[in-house]
Nucleic acid binder design. Structure first.
Lengths: 225, 225
DNA sequence: AGGAGTTGTGAGGGACTTGTGAACGCCGTG
DNA sequence: CACGGCGTTCACAAGTCCCTCACAACTCCT
């Protein structure tokens, strides 16, 4: 079954989580700091990472970023409760889900299952991305079809749409979208994403890409009219 | 049923993949390095090759190139995970599909089926390539016909057109086109492709070869006006 | 309703990519 | 050994795309 990497600096928590996950049938790897986490992720190739935000040394945020850069392993964040909006923190990090401490181990296991279920099927980049019945992105052909009509997108536009469409409903920040386009996200370019989105919408219509105020953009889920 | 050649230097992976494929009804051949792979491909005539990119000795890419040269057997690449996994890696590889490690054997079997289905229906490695009703390329004779008129193309020009026309709509990078012409793609020659394209267009007209800005060229699909 | 902050939009400049004609070198042929 | 075809290179023209800017429209919060 799936392998889970658990990263936390408190041995008690690691032990607890490990017990529950193993009892749930998962194979468990552990690490107690950021460096070790990255090392273990590289060698152990976990299917999902449970990551504490407040790590000594390399911060959980940095670890998440590195993991994202190296692959697409889903991440569940553990955050201490703060005044900050939990939702925003999780999204910024590119986490797939998050839990605030204290949490119930049972809940964690449930979330792990949920995320794995959600991610399955879209794990590795497919040749053709489909959303609903009228969106089709053929990656090698760089060809896009929306509602039967073929649409010519530029390279950047295609990459943005492809990233969004690969996980409909998930919100991407401008930095993440920039990263997909330029390989690296430079703050000052972020408004350029707006321009791309505008141009894309002009080509494919308004209804596919939704704006999430204060956060970023997401691809509309298929059920959308 | 179909025969699959599996090439990987890790016996564990080979064994695993073999089990799944055989369970799925395929006949399986295996090889653990590039030389053996080419030998086995020649004698065993597999319908598809599953190829690890990181092979000892002869590199996976070289093997792919040789396979491509000798026939048109479809290839599924296994690649180590990189940050580029999102992007147009598939293009560069010239593979029919690719999976990043780690992958689930179940997924691999599904991809194998998909590629075979896709390739089936497509023109078999025919001697004559046809696109729509007015494009006809007789490969052994190196004879080209566009809209009834016979056109004389040089060897390089013919190879470029043939590669493009074999998969209309698919975008090829300059490196891939160079690869078809010279066997090896050397960066500095890439602009030479532009010159070839110019000359080809002068001979066959503008409407057949489309430019994909920032990526490469593609053959227009038959429906084109 | 008002204000601060965020997003939408059109226009324009600059960087980069591609098109093109001409020239060069290579190589086989006459 | 000159010639011609071919592939490549070069320089410049033409084209495309992306980012920026400025302002309008909108959202959220109080």
């Amino acid at each position: 079954m799936a392998t889970i990497l658990v990263v936390d600096d408190e041995p008690r928590i690691v032990q607890l989580v490990r017990d529950y996950l193993e009892h749930g049938g998962f194979t468990v790897l552990t690490a107690s700091d950021g460096q070790a986490a990255l090392r273990t992720a590289r060698t152990g190739r976990p299917d999902l990472v449970v990551l504490d935000l407040g790590l000594p040394g390399l911060d959980g945020l940095d670890v998440a970023r590195s993991l994202r850069r190296e692959g697409e392993v889903p991440i569940i964040m553990l955050t201490a409760r703060t005044e900050e909006s939990d939702k925003l923190v999780g999204l910024e990090l590119g986490a797939d889900d998050y839990l605030t401490k204290p949490f119930s181990p049972k809940e964690l296991v449930a979330r792990v299952r949920a995320v794995l279920r959600r991610v399955e099927g879209m794990q590795s980049p497919a040749d053709v991305i489909r959303v609903g019945s009228d969106v089709e992105l053929d990656v090698p052909r760089m060809e896009a079809r929306f509602g039967g009509r073929r649409v010519d997108l530029t390279k950047s536009e295609f990459q943005i749409v492809a990233l969004l469409a690969r996980q409909p409903g998930r919100v991407f920040t401008r930095a993440q979208l920039l990263d997909a386009v330029r390989g690296v996200a430079i703050e000052s370019y972020e408004r350029a994403i707006d321009a791309h989105i505008k141009n894309i919408r002009k080509k494919i219509g308004q209804r596919y890409i939704e704006t999430v105020f204060g956060v970023g953009y997401r691809f509309a889920e298929s059920a959308e009219k």
